[in-house]
Design a protein around this nucleic acid. Structure first.
Lengths: 217, 217
DNA sequence: ACAATAGTGTCTGTGAGACAGTATCGA
DNA sequence: TCGATACTGTCTCACAGACACTATTGT
């Protein structure tokens, strides 16, 4: 196994003349509203892809970690703080941006609709499937959609879509939307039981049986 | 949801004066030999971390996709072509390299020991756990180790460690090493049965019952 | 015959899936 | 009482886990 010398490193890669790609983080911000998983998008106001929709993103500063760039992006573009996010995948096709070489580190962010700015542009994943988006952002959203579906099965990400206190019918609905299939009530409750705590509180006011309020364990 | 103008884009990020991070791909090349999962490492010959072990990696060229950089790296550093690889995670801590800002896109690569150059430096994951490595490479290897363990459960990556034809005891041993736990022979065979094809060939020569040779379906 | 490894038959418990039932609210 | 939604009990079936057994080679 060969090694190249540090000298080569510096000559080839560190010099002022070596052309570096730009690095951006793009955020797939998902929420659930109106019984659908929706993604926050931005309308582009400049070329390329003028007037098309794209993911919110920011370039990564030279003194800023990727995660910090994401926090800044979520704050700047959506006014949000302290929400769940995780890295998805890094997209590096040479021609993914016609202006210049940009490598995009994509992130998944989840937020309950209650926390979200009402002016945000939200599009359901179903709609997006039939739309054209700027750059390779449609592919990125599809990747995020798959990740969410998979992780709903073996993690607790579903809770990120709900406020601190919630009912089991609400939680079940979130799972059904994420997994894109109906679930049996009784089975769902048996499976979810170890993950939740009864708050001793109830909902009320509706013309039917009230439901218990739970929070995540 | 606010958007920033393209003008700001160009001013802030595209100008000659905007300092960009470097982007590298680092490869976690795993193989199985001597009943252990081992990782290919390189001895650093220059500062920083002189004489310490590190992952093989290359910088990403301005006209080169991430995957192409990985292929080039695997070819240059290990003389390999057409092996399995997948992206792992992108590491972007500001101080992960003391020389300069380098964002590392890590990749997992798997290869059967038969294909691997005998001069490669191989260290078992257990050993690496007790060693010090250059940069954040130890953390990257631990991440790769987890990924392999998880994916062994629901994908066919185990086959990447074996030649085209193999016996079930061999395959079981691969799974045991990846999952780091013993498996029951009969159960293993029932579970793996739909994934394999009998080649009608047998091993032989040993002082015990020969075993059938299979290939991946 | 024996050592060593390859390969099989079958019991058990757990948990997902399916469905039918009961409970509690407002009107 | 009724409509609507919340909640529960229980059967079945598939499959992972565990273990005991049989089979086939060279020496």
């Amino acid at each position: 196994m060969k090694n190249i010398s540090e000298k080569q490193f510096l000559e080839q890669y560190s010099s002022e003349h070596y052309e570096k790609p730009s690095v951006a983080v793009d955020m797939v911000l998902f929420t659930i509203v109106d019984d659908a998983l929706k993604c926050a998008l931005i309308k582009r106001e400049e070329h390329p892809f003028k007037d098309m929709l794209s993911l919110p993103g920011v370039f990564v500063g030279i003194d800023e970690s990727l995660d910090d760039a994401v926090k800044r992006g979520i704050g700047t573009k959506a006014g949000l703080h302290d929400i769940y996010f995780e890295q998805l995948y890094t997209w590096g096709a040479v021609d993914r941006d016609p202006r210049m070489r940009i490598i995009s580190v994509s992130y998944l962010a989840l937020v309950p609709i209650e926390k979200l700015d009402t002016t945000a542009l939200l599009y359901s994943c179903d709609e997006i499937g039939k739309m054209q988006l700027a750059f390779d952002h449609k592919k990125i959203i599809e990747y995020a959609r798959e990740r969410v579906k998979n992780k709903a099965n073996y993690t607790n990400i579903a809770f990120e879509f709900l406020p601190e206190e919630f009912t089991l019918p609400q939680l079940q609905r979130v799972y059904e939307i994420l997994l894109d299939k109906p679930l049996y009530k009784a089975n769902f409750r048996k499976k979810i039981e170890p993950l939740i705590i009864d708050t001793e509180k109830m909902t009320g006011g509706a013309a039917h049986r009230p439901s218990k309020l739970y929070k995540q364990k």
